[in-house]
Structures are given as structure tokens and as C-alpha cells.
Computed example of a mutant assay.
Amino acid sequence: MSVPMLDINRQNQPLMDEITAAITEVCKSGAFLKGPAVKQLEEDIAAYCGTEHAIGCASGTDALLVALMALDIGPGDEVILPSFTFFATAGSVWRVGATPVFADIVPGTYNLSPEDVERRITPHTKAIMPVHLFGQAADMTALNRIAKKHNLHVIEDAAQAIGATEGGQRVGALGTIGCFSFYPTKNLGGMGDGGIITTNDAELASKMRVLCDHGQEPRYYHHMVGLNSRLDTVQAAAIGVKFRCLDSYAEAREKHALRYNERFKKLGLCDVLGVPGVAQGRRSVWNQYTVRVEDGARDALQQYLAERQIGSAVYYPVPLHLQKCFAELGYKEGDLPHTEQAAREVLSLPVFPELTKAEQTEVIEAVTAFAAEARTNQKRDAA
């Protein structure tokens, strides 16, 4: 049995009639930008996250960029962020002319280490940008405490974690600004690119809304240089249909993740696999189910699964501090040991909501067979 890493069509197909009807309504109205579906989605996301404001934009990357611009972060400023994340996190900082300062992660959660963040603060530091990686909130309590102590902004990169919580409060409402992505593979995925920004600061919300529309207010009167970064109404209409299913998607992902953990532990595979955990006081929405495979066996396991037509993925094989485009920052191997170890060891297994029990069993059995072969080889080599 082949098992895909992700199957977007399985999620969209049951909703296709509703999505088509919502898009058709937009086409009939002609309100392709700033239409009613955009306003409704903004209100829904703000209420869901527990913020006063939400501003639609063209992508999760633009959400980060607009947040930085709204906070007047630019040349001469530093932003502390993880190296173990998607490129957009650091790329947005670079784009505004600021300097990304990479900090290490907490091994158990893959999220930004508050202790490492604090030791990297300088007089040039203006913000901390934690990433709620793989669907689990970073330690926002500690990071906010550090930010308050040093008078810093906190920009949440919540692209992978809509609905995740810390202390019962959802991400997007835990920092100064929250940034989300509606890329099709996300927990709330659209039909293309899209993003949204959340905040409780009315002044920042107003500024970000203007920045997303070329910096004009009213039309043709530009008080700042902005972007063309509007969430189009067609996307908002489709996402609005799927939004009603968001919590059920998260519940299905959590069910799959707990079954993986339970089965891998019961089968005694914890000496081969490092299974993911969730820190106390947090709830993950499991954008990814990511194990650790030690002793250089990660790539072998991925190949083993691929030969059996089982999907898997490596997020992220080259940490950002070692990427060629950031070479001038002067980082070298060994600077962020936990990040570099994770890049060598992590492997994400299928966890999408529509994954069947039979498919998941196929994954578990394949991983178990690989582990058994690995143990046999170890005994033979030791003999």
C-alpha cells in the first residue's frame, strides 16, 4: 500500500461543492479584492485567535515582512530568530535591511531556546521572532518575559500552528504581532498563496492594513511605501469554507500523532526513534509529526520508506545560519549544536487529517521493520 506524505485533494474534495459555490459568488459580485469574504475571514480569524484585529495579506511571507515594516525595523536593527525554520522567517528580516541573529533551539520541541535568545541580545536588538514549529507553540511565557525586560517586540511566526495554544491562549495573540500562512499544505490551507496578520494594537493594525495596499490611505495618497499584498476575495471565500473544519482537522492530526507515539513506545522503538513530545501547558496542532533518527540512519530510513512507497520529508536539511546567502554573517558549523543535530536527524511522517488507520499502520510496520533490521545489523557488527 502506498501512503502519501500529504493528500490535499482528500481534504478539499468533500468541500468542493461549497468551495465552488463560494468562489462563484465572488465571481458574480465582481468584488475580487476587499470583498465581503475577506472581511468575514478577518473577523473569524481574529475571534478564533483571541485578538482585536486581523489583516489579510498575500502570503505568510508577506505577513512577516509587513509586521517588520510596521514596527519600523530596518538597517542597523537585529532580530533574533531560530535557524531551524523555513527560509521566509530570516528572509523577511533580510529584506527590510535588518540583521537576522540566529539562536539555538530546545531539543525536545525544536522551538527557539529562551536562554540562547537572551544571551544574544545587544543594543541593536529590536525584536524576537519565535517560530511555532511543526504546530507547537514556542515558550512564549519565557520569551515575552525576556522581551519585556529588554523592551523588545515579539513577532510570532505562526505559519504552521494556527490553533495551537500555550496556557489555553491561541498563538497569534501571544506576542506583539502574529503571522499566519494559508499555503495549501498548512493546517488551514487555501487554493494558493495567502496569509493573515493578527494583533491587539489598533494603531499597528491600521498601519499594517495600509502597508498591505501600497501604503495608500485614501487611494492615491501615499504616506508610506507599502506592498501590493492583499488577500484576494476568491482565496478568502475558499479558506472561509475550510475554516469551519479547522478544529476537526487538528483533532484528527492529534489522534494520529498520539497513535504513533503509543505504538512506537509499545513496540520498544524509542532506542531507535526519538518521538516528538508536547511541552506542559501547550497543545500542538501537529502540522508535522517529526521523529529523530540517530546514528546517521535518518536518510536510510527515508530511503527504506520510499522503496515501500511511503511518503516522508526532511524539514530542514540545511539550517539557515549555514545557508550560502547568509555566509557574510559569519556563522560556522558548531555554532548552533542543537539546531545542527536536528537538521541531521529529523524525519517527518504522514499525519494529515485524512490519513486512514490502515495507511498509518503501514507506516508503523515499515518503521518497525527498519528498526529490526538495524538492530540485527548492529548485533552482527558487534560480534
Rank of each mutant, 00 (worst) to 15 (best):
L112P: 06
S348N: 05
Q303W: 09
A372D: 14
R170N: 13
L211K: 09
G268H: 09
L301T: 00
G311L: 04
V96W: 03
Q309R: 12
V210M: 11
M5S: 07
R263H: 11
I197K: 04
L65H: 13
L355T: 07
Q11R: 10
E345L: 06
D299L: 13
P82Q: 07
Q13V: 11
V154C: 05
A173M: 00
G56Y: 14
A343W: 03
T361E: 15
C212I: 00
Q288K: 12
E333T: 13
G168Y: 09
T141K: 14
R119Y: 09
E115N: 05
K28C: 07
L305R: 09
V93E: 06
S59F: 03
Q235L: 04
V117R: 02
D381Y: 12
K39Y: 08
A342C: 08
D72A: 15
V106K: 12
M224E: 13
M1D: 13
Y289E: 00
P130G: 04
R170Q: 05
E254V: 03
M16Q: 14
E25H: 12
V234D: 02
Q323E: 14
S229I: 01
R344T: 02
A88F: 03
D17E: 15
T290F: 07
N261R: 15
K126N: 03
P114D: 05
A138C: 11
F84T: 00
G167T: 04
G226W: 01
D232R: 08
M224K: 13
V278W: 12
S248C: 03
K265G: 04
M16S: 13
H214T: 01
Y220A: 07
M129L: 14
T89D: 10
D72I: 01
L81M: 12
A88P: 08
F326L: 14
D72F: 08
V3C: 04
R219E: 05
S113L: 04
L64W: 05
H256F: 08
D139A: 10
L329I: 03
A70D: 04
T290C: 15
A297T: 02
F87S: 11
K242S: 06
E115A: 14
L320E: 04
Q169C: 08
N287T: 05
M208F: 10
Q341M: 12
L355C: 06
V241F: 08
D193R: 05
L188T: 01
A31S: 13
E254H: 11
G190T: 04
T185Q: 13
L41Q: 06
H321I: 00
V363S: 10
E328H: 13
D201V: 03
P184H: 02
M208K: 02
I162L: 15
K39C: 01
V96C: 06
E340W: 14
D201H: 10
G296M: 06
L355K: 08
A67Q: 01
I177E: 03
T185F: 13
G35A: 06
G74Q: 10
V93D: 10
V66S: 08
L174Q: 04
L81T: 12
M208C: 05
K265N: 08
S181I: 01
L336V: 06
H222W: 02
D381P: 00
K148E: 15
R292E: 09
Q323A: 14
E365R: 10
G60T: 01
P350N: 04
N12M: 06
E118I: 02
T356I: 09
N151Q: 12
Q302I: 00
P319W: 11
L6N: 08
L33D: 08
A158D: 07
Q303T: 12
N377D: 11
S284N: 13
Q13E: 14
P337E: 05
E25C: 12
E115P: 01
